[in-house]
Design a protein around this nucleic acid. Structure first.
Lengths: 215, 215
DNA sequence: TCTAAATTACTGACCAGTCAGTAATTAAAT
DNA sequence: ATTTAATTACTGACTGGTCAGTAATTTAGA
């Protein structure tokens, strides 16, 4: 009988917090906050439950850490695009596609699902998230849209409302991946979905003609 | 000291199941399945916890009942629209607006949020929901889109993918109402949102010109 | 060594589910 | 009608298991 190795029991003060929040994120997204046990998080991270309490005061504190360190860093990447692109159409495309590639298609894509599920159980985190993530992301999108309208490239639409409408299909798809996706077989092809999405919204947004009104 | 009335203790065998699932739905949507106590559901419905077990075998069974009786009836309403409308544009509008008015804007609008949150904890319910609600709803939308493409009213787009893209902004908004909505102050005006939404997607979907290509 | 990191064993609150009993309703008997 | 018996809807105290959080102990590294 080969006995199971007792435990390596490494000490790695620096890397731990990341490993713990990563493990917590994936389990919170999968099962929800209340249904996730700290023992499971610890096991996935390769430590014992007690170790969790060396780095986080409580399960709630762990939740907050997951949300905070998850998304905020990814926003910088979007904001620099405003200066990188001049053409409003290319800019908008880059922002939306960037969101998908950096967040939606990664593990981070579970955060919107998690945050939506738990917003009313953690009102303070929800407010934080709404201000630091949603409003900031919306502001970014709004600038891109406004620039397009100013230059006559986009039709005149309500900039505030359009932002939600634009991001919704991407968030929706990301949430799907973390809910029905694993249960209900075949997801449609991502590339096809993105293509159809951009085709619809950009076509719906573009002013009818480049110069004045003729084709 | 006027003593508190002990309890009316009404007996209403017929109405109970509805009252219980209604109470359960609103609490499940608010707190999530795991974080909702049966005592709270019972209290909101004006009965004791024991009564719950006269009508449902378990907390899980109650969840399933909430989902099943919640949405399925509302689908019929959509399916009859296929025959009521001939014009594809009006049909599509009626379907999407109908979804908002019958589901999205009502208490039922919490079900997508609930189902997304709990899909991976209830794979069998998720499969049921996916087949009986999502696929059925998608099929309905697809027919409307296909009719529009056939008649040259809509541009040629992938019918499968477009359905998700079309419904996403409505579902997203409904989920918002039940998550961030109560926490984070001002929601933008619904009418304005719907107007902008229809403006974008219908404009994005319409073929460039009625007859051939000229404006 | 000796300190810090991690584990293990433990506690107590909480909650799904149970069940003996009570109140309301109906039916039967006078 | 009015009491009595039988039935049915409902209650709430109780139990057993679970799990967040803690305290005692062990192990790794300087």
């Amino acid at each position: 009988m080969a006995e199971t190795r007792p435990a390596p029991r490494r000490r790695r003060k620096e890397a731990r917090p990341q490993e713990l929040t990563a493990a917590a994120l994936s389990l919170f997204v999968e099962k929800g906050f209340a249904a996730t046990r700290l023992d499971d998080i610890a096991e996935r991270a390769g430590v014992s439950k007690g170790t969790l309490y060396l780095y986080f005061d409580s399960k709630d504190a762990l939740f907050k850490a997951v949300i905070q360190e998850g998304i905020v860093p990814a926003l910088h990447a979007g904001e620099v695009l405003l200066d990188e692109y001049d053409d409003p159409l290319a800019l908008l495309r880059a922002i939306l596609l960037g969101w998908w590639e950096r967040i939606g298609s990664t593990e981070l894509g579970g955060i919107p699902k998690l945050m939506m599920s738990e917003a009313r159980n953690f009102p303070d985190v929800a407010v934080y998230y709404q201000q630091e993530v949603i409003q900031r992301g919306t502001a970014l999108l709004r600038k891109a849209v406004a620039r397009g309208i100013e230059r006559g490239v986009f039709r005149k639409v309500d900039p505030e409302a359009i932002c939600s409408v634009l991001i919704a299909p991407l968030v929706y798809r990301a949430m799907w991946r973390h809910s029905f996706g694993p249960c209900c077989g075949q997801e449609t092809d991502v590339a096809q979905y993105l293509h159809t999405y951009f085709d619809l919204v950009l076509n719906g947004l573009l002013a009818p003609a480049p110069g004045g009104d003729a084709q």
